[in-house]
Computed example of a mutant assay.
Amino acid sequence: MAGPDEGQRTSVLLPGERLGLDLDERCPEFEELLLAPPLHGIRPDGHDWLRQRYEEIVPLVLPAALRAVEHGEPVDRECLARLRTVAAASAGDPRVDVSVVLRGALPAIRVFALVMHTATRGRSVSPDHAARTMLAMSRASLVAHELGSCWAEAWARERRRPVAAPAAQAAPAAAVTTGEIDLVAGAPGLDETEERMLALAAHGLSNEQIAKETSYSRQAVAWHLGRLMRSWKAPNRTAMVSVAFVKGWIRSRCAPRAAARTWPPELGSGSGPGPGSATELGAGSATYDDAP
């Protein structure tokens, strides 16, 4: 049996191929919408905070984000570096809840979907154009997730910088020495093993590295950390650690300079991916192993 007419087949764009939608030339249109983002689904007490963050972030990242979607390229490294700087600067603001941070990219995805829908509404759209629009939505979701994760990681890293504490304050049971910093973990419902695993995960160790330090199997580590993610409704390890820092279940304290062992560098240090770590979309900002 003869196949369908070749002229009616929908072309498939591979990653790295230009969409032909001229998205990177439409910055003013997107910027106007993003500076008044749709905030339904975001905690009402976080609306003002998130609007202020969009006012800071949109001018910095929008051109690079649209280019990444249009051309299928990684987000520019300099753009990500600027985003981390802005995130760190806002970490001292006490008004924000972690749920607002983790959902911060949703308004941007909604704006992109609205523009794509408006561009095709009431028009006769060819199969080829429809395929390009769907691919644009897929790429935009990945780019928004990448930018949101990059922001949240830098924000969480800055939030966990050590602060002065009363000398008599008792530390949680599980402590991990990391050169000049101790991370101590303690949360309701966690046993000593899970507290130690959580502290090690906060320093960016992979499941395999945590298994070696705790004498558990890699599968057991994945099970314990997976239980914490499910219990705290965290979609990945980055979110799990962010929740723990914000809730005060992980804290930092100074430790002797001559530590017995040196761990991998701090979260988001830009040193490159390690074993089991998750990398940025086509870039190289490795931090956590998001798989349990």
Rank of each mutant, 00 (worst) to 15 (best):
P63G: 08
R77Q: 12
S99N: 10
A140K: 05
A187D: 05
V98C: 12
S149T: 11
S252N: 03
E158P: 05
G248R: 01
P265Q: 12
R157E: 05
R43P: 01
S217C: 01
R159Q: 10
A81H: 14
G92P: 08
E153Q: 06
C79K: 10
W151D: 06
A113Q: 15
G20I: 08
G276V: 01
G276K: 04
A88D: 04
A88C: 12
T287M: 00
N207Y: 03
G3C: 06
S99C: 09
R53K: 10
E78C: 11
V86C: 15
H47V: 10
S277F: 05
D24C: 05
A2K: 12
T120W: 08
R82L: 12
C254I: 00
E192Q: 10
P15E: 07
L33N: 13
W151H: 04
T214L: 00
D128T: 09
L198Q: 02
G179E: 05
G268P: 06
V143L: 13
G92W: 15
V241C: 06
A170Q: 15
G20H: 09
E70W: 05
G41A: 09
P235D: 02
G186C: 11
V69P: 01
A91K: 14
A113I: 10
S141V: 14
E194Y: 04
H129Q: 15
P94F: 14
A156R: 10
S269M: 09
G276F: 02
P172N: 02
V58N: 08
E266L: 09
A130C: 14
R132K: 11
K247V: 00
R251F: 01
A239N: 02
A64L: 05
S11W: 09
D290V: 00
E78Q: 15
A152C: 05
G20R: 10
L142E: 15
A65K: 08
S11E: 14
A234N: 06
M134Y: 04
R196E: 05
M116E: 13
A36K: 13
W151P: 02
A154M: 06
V111C: 12
L80G: 02
A68E: 03
I42L: 07
L267T: 11
M197C: 08
P275H: 11
G276H: 07
N207I: 01
G3I: 07
A291Y: 04
P15I: 03
